[in-house]
């Protein structure tokens, strides 16, 4: 479980996150939703330590991450897997080397075991026979899946995904969403997914927090989201015609 307590983050004078508190539970797909520019990526980057919050606490299963000693911080980081908005694969390495990388750096596994693990994870994201290709030679959806494989290869306890299906067709999107939900359930990890895709919200949203104007305006699950009574959230949820039709039925 990850607990965020009274998180505040601003850039210069602009407050991007104002007093956000939230709990992300283990074994659940937790979603952060909100309009573009609402601070979703900034929130994720604060949680994983890429930005330093102005104030507030972040607890990984009770372990204070912000004020942790460097060794503990590194320990926690090594339990984190992250899928970045653009995949962030190392472009000088093959698919196989990319997925193997965390094992090379973080473990002392023998080479053969590493390769087994890599192949297992690539199979898990339904990418066989791409081992020797370079990231530039595979499609965006495949890059995202390699990113997921890399994020889970070291048996991460915490999985963060920044818009795992932006720029993908609806079918591939749903596949990736389901994959993330399956992995979360299967390995009982704490998964946090940033998205602004209503399809994902309805498909896999077990816990959802809505970020707007630097505040947490609402939290709940995909059943409640249709009847939140929060105007900003309604605008977000019913922005597309299909959702409006669905509501009016």
């Amino acid at each position: 479980m990850i607990e965020v307590k009274n998180l505040v983050k601003s850039f210069d004078d602009k407050v991007v996150l104002d007093d956000i508190s939230v709990k992300f539970e283990k074994g659940k797909t937790n979603l952060i939703i909100g309009a573009s520019g609402s601070g979703k990526s900034v929130m994720l980057k604060n949680i994983v330590g890429l930005f330093k919050p102005d104030s507030g606490d972040i607890l990984y299963d009770g372990r204070d991450f912000i004020n942790a000693h460097r060794d503990l911080k590194t320990d926690i980081r090594r339990e984190i897997g992250m899928l970045f908005q653009g995949g962030a694969l190392f472009d000088s390495m093959t698919v196989e080397q990319n997925v193997k990388f965390p094992l090379d750096i973080l473990t002392k596994m023998p080479e053969e075991e590493k390769l087994d693990r890599v192949n297992f994870c690539l199979k898990r994201v339904k990418l066989e026979n791409t081992n020797k290709r370079m990231p530039s030679e595979i499609s965006g959806g495949m890059q995202k899946r390699v990113g997921i494989a890399r994020a889970i290869v070291n048996s991460s306890q915490y999985l963060f995904c920044d818009e795992p299906n932006s720029g993908l067709d609806p079918i591939t999107s749903i596949k990736i969403d389901r994959l993330l939900a399956e992995i979360t359930e299967e390995y009982q990890i704490t998964t946090v997914i940033v998205t602004h895709d209503m399809n994902s919200v309805m498909e896999i949203g077990e816990y959802i927090m809505f970020l707007s104007n630097s505040h947490k305006l609402w939290e709940g699950n995909s059943d409640d989201i249709m009847h939140s009574g929060v105007q900003e959230l309604d605008e977000f949820v019913f922005a597309n015609k299909m959702m409006r039709k669905f509501r009016d039925q």
Binding site: K45, V48, G49, L50, K73, T74, D75, R77, R78, I80, M82, F84, Q85, G86, A88, L89, F90, D91, F101, P102, I105, L106
Partner: peptide, 17 residues
């Protein structure tokens, strides 16, 4: 620079490197 803007550097940091 390319590694920075494509978040490859962030990816290394998250791994604790």
């Amino acid at each position: 620079g390319t590694m920075r803007i494509t978040e490859q550097i962030d990816a290394l940091e998250v791994m604790g490197i």
